[in-house]
Simulated assay, not measured.
Amino acid sequence: MLRLLSLETATDQGAFALWSGEVTAAEIRVQSFKQFCCPAGQPHAETLLPALRIALNELDWSLASIDAIVFDAGPGMFTGLRVSAALAQGLAIALNKPVIPVCSLEVLAEAAHQAMGATTVLSLLDARMNQIYAAGWTKEGLDWQAAFEPCLVGPDNLDYLPAMSKPLAAAGTGIKEYPAAADWLAQQGIVDSAVRYPSADALARLGAVRFQAGVFTDPAEAIPVYVRDRVALTTAERAAGEIL
């Protein structure tokens, strides 16, 4: 039976899961799943590893018994992405285990599928700075195919996103944070799945599908996907009126 550790720290709602199950051609069978949330208001870097040690003891798992480490590679919160990528790298190298990175926006799509059976999903994750990370997904079997790749868009410019087939559901914190995004979804007749955050459960399920398919990443190449590399302006740039 496959055992996975999934690290979900792309947002301020940090969590990880210890997941076991198997993947067939038609379905994902979960034997056991337990999610652990990082304490609110504390940096993921300080809470993730101590919580993982406690969780392993509770389930009587050893790190060596885990078959692979799955982590949310982003886009998302810069510091959170670096924490999970670094932990995944360190554990994979120390234990000689494979690493499986997954896009946060695909994790949102899988979470929406779990919540309401959605098979076509528009993921809208708050990128701060009055921007949204957006991507479109269509489910094919157990996999998701990108209708369009992750990009940055303003909440008032969602009309510029590539068209997607309907029925279409939406997920992500961008809906909650930007009223213009919620209004646009209503105008387009896109259903709000009410899913706001990528989950460690959905992340583990996607990791299991990739593990079964033999899709791994060398730990040295397990790095975050930021989409936006610049997160701040210099003092001179702000004084000149530049914006990101």
Rank of each mutant, 00 (worst) to 15 (best):
A51M: 07
L48A: 01
A194L: 08
L59N: 04
L206I: 05
Q13K: 15
W137R: 14
A202S: 12
P219S: 08
D67M: 14
E140C: 03
P75Y: 04
A25F: 01
A115G: 09
A15M: 03
W144Y: 13
D192A: 00
A146I: 10
Y133S: 09
T47Q: 09
P162W: 10
A88D: 08
A163N: 05
A170C: 05
W61Y: 11
L52M: 10
T9D: 02
L108E: 02
E110K: 06
L105E: 00
A94Q: 13
L18V: 03
P50H: 02
P98F: 02
W184E: 12
I132M: 03
V83K: 04
A55S: 05
C37T: 03
G189V: 05
Q145Y: 00
A239G: 04
E106W: 05
A45R: 13
L48N: 00
L56K: 00
F33I: 11
P75M: 07
D201P: 05
A15S: 15
C103K: 01
S84A: 12
A135G: 12
A170H: 01
M164T: 07
A115E: 07
V209L: 06
D229K: 15
T217C: 13
G74V: 08
K166E: 07
N57H: 04
N130D: 13
V99E: 02
A181C: 14
P150K: 04
A200R: 13
A202R: 13
P39E: 03
M164R: 09
Q89F: 02
Q42S: 03
K34L: 09
E106G: 06
S20P: 07
A181P: 07
L95Y: 03
A55Y: 04
A73K: 14
L91K: 05
R128N: 07
A118G: 12
Q187C: 07
W184C: 15
S104R: 05
V227Q: 09
A112D: 02
E221C: 02
P75C: 10
V231R: 14
P162L: 08
A112K: 01
S104I: 08
P162S: 09
N57Y: 01
C37K: 06
E140S: 08
T79S: 14
V209I: 15
F36C: 06
T9L: 01
A73C: 14
Q114L: 15
L142E: 06
S165R: 15
D218Q: 12
V231Q: 12
G214N: 09
A111S: 12
P179A: 14
A17P: 09
I28Q: 06
T235Q: 10
C103T: 01
T24I: 02
A51P: 01
S199I: 09
I132V: 15
C103G: 00
P101L: 03
